[in-house]
Design a protein around this nucleic acid. Structure first.
Lengths: 201, 201
DNA sequence: ATATGTCAAGAGTAATTACTCTAATAGTGA
DNA sequence: TCACTATTAGAGTAATTACTCTTGACATAT
């Protein structure tokens, strides 16, 4: 593997186990046994590493609009994928607001990505209604559910940590359960049937 | 006002406008025009200041168990109070996980407080059901709603910031709206009536 | 009056951070 | 082979951080 990629992996590992402030570029270089000069040859500074990790995470998780989940099962399958990414890059969500306050570029980039993400989630719920999985009595239920998903995706793991529990790869199941609970009042009989089958398989 | 209290206020102001890493003890001292020596006479280090601010915040927000909201209106009134505190100490929730990772003492303290807080919220929902404001078909709805409240209280403001919106004192109204939306499927007619009157007054 | 504790100033410093710079080596295409 | 570019090591450093230490002013208690 290239040094450039190894730097990312080592940084990610250190960021996840400690935090981005404690893991300086000097530490990262030492941990992977290369010189500081070498590290700085590949990445200008730590911000650049974090930014690259962010973009990498984005590539691993973004669904294009045409590939949005069409029904309830696809939605929960997609959430399974997301949970892996959220675990892999857990340092990022742990420190999210702090990181954004230290890097204006990352901040503006994250915000515009996040707005787009929010819109895709909203569209997904409209899709679900169109496909008869969701029964939406009032219009602003879409906003309601969208906000719930945003909160859970971004902050479920951090919340778990504030309750003294260690998070792990599978810990997101609880989040999925929570999301289902939030949607349940609006799920149709058809959707519930699909989910039952999905759970059995 | 005592120097000791002025330090807290200045630190809070700086923490809120930038972040806890950028606001060093040297900066705080300079901002309030006292010497570093003087600042360190009153507080051992920055961690001590943050810890004190945390305890202050706690005092301003904790309800004793006997004073828990008894019905839906008291609940939302309490949330109004909480929203002021969340705004006043917004730096804390912005950086929550980062701060906990840097200070083990704060971490263990916050976690035990938070667990107690969670329990009080759960009890409040049981209270609401007892008073006929909440209709709970399945038992785990209590957990569901408790998790929702925890997420919203702790992370609503941070989420708003990740969508590019500035938060302010009144910004928590949206959070309240969201919470109501989450509870709506389980609110009784009686509760909805109370809320209508509450909104009019 | 003297002693004692409190509060404050500010100079000084060890340690750390976030790099830069130079020089050397390895690889690659002409 | 030679020229050039890419990669790497590691010494060196300016700036910052997070304090400590000494000194002195005041207030109060004895």
């Amino acid at each position: 593997m290239s040094t450039k990629q190894r730097i990312l992996e080592t940084a990610l590992e250190l960021f996840n186990t400690t935090n981005t402030q404690a893991a300086t570029t000097n530490h990262i270089a030492k941990a992977m046994e290369i010189s500081v000069g070498n590290l700085h040859y590949h990445y200008k500074n730590r911000e650049a590493i974090i930014f690259k990790l962010y973009k990498q995470m984005l590539e691993e998780s973004t669904l294009l609009v045409q590939d949005l989940p069409k029904d309830i099962v696809e939605l929960f399958e997609h959430q399974k994928l997301m949970s892996k990414v959220l675990w892999k890059y857990r340092f990022f969500y742990r420190e999210l607001l702090f990181l954004l306050s230290r890097d204006p570029l990352l901040k503006s980039r994250y915000i515009s990505d996040n707005l787009a993400h929010r819109e895709r989630i909203r569209i997904t719920f409209v899709n679900l209604a169109t496909h008869g999985d969701l029964d939406v009595p009032i219009d602003n239920i879409y906003e309601q559910l969208t906000d719930t998903v945003m909160l859970v995706l971004t902050f479920w793991n951090p919340m778990i940590e504030t309750l003294g529990q260690e998070i792990d790869e599978n810990g997101f199941e609880a989040a999925t359960t929570h999301l289902r609970g939030s949607m349940r009042p609006y799920l149709t009989k058809q959707a519930l049937d699909k989910l039952r089958k999905f759970d059995d398989s």
